[in-house]
Amino acid sequence: MGKSGYLTLRAGAEAQGEFEDRRSRFIAQLVHVADEAAADAFIAEVRARHHDARHNVPAWILSDGRERCSDDGEPSRTSGMPTLEVLRGAGLADVCCVVTRYFGGTLLGPGGLVRAYTAATQQAVAAAEAEGAIVEMTLVTPVVVQLPYALYDRVSRLIDEAGGKVKDSLFLEDVQLTCAFRAGTEAPFLAAVSELACGEELARAGDPRFAEF
Rank of each mutant, 00 (worst) to 15 (best):
M1F: 12
L7S: 08
L7C: 08
T8M: 03
G12W: 06
Q16I: 04
E18V: 09
D21Y: 04
R23V: 04
F26P: 01
H32Q: 13
A39R: 08
D40Y: 14
R47T: 05
R49E: 09
H50P: 08
H50S: 12
D52I: 09
A53L: 06
A53D: 02
V57F: 03
P58Q: 10
P58R: 09
A59L: 05
S63G: 12
D64R: 12
G65W: 11
E67A: 14
R68H: 15
R68E: 13
D72N: 07
G73N: 07
L84Q: 13
E85C: 03
L87H: 05
R101G: 04
G104F: 14
P110F: 06
L113A: 03
L113N: 00
A119K: 08
Q122Y: 05
A128G: 10
V135C: 00
E136Q: 15
M137I: 13
V140Y: 01
V144W: 02
V145N: 00
L151Y: 11
L151E: 13
Y152A: 13
I159L: 11
D160F: 13
S169W: 01
V175M: 09
C179I: 01
C179V: 06
A183N: 11
G184T: 12
T185Q: 14
A191Q: 14
A197P: 00
E200P: 01
A203D: 00
G206R: 07
D207W: 02
R209L: 05
A211D: 15
E212L: 11
E212Y: 10
F213I: 09
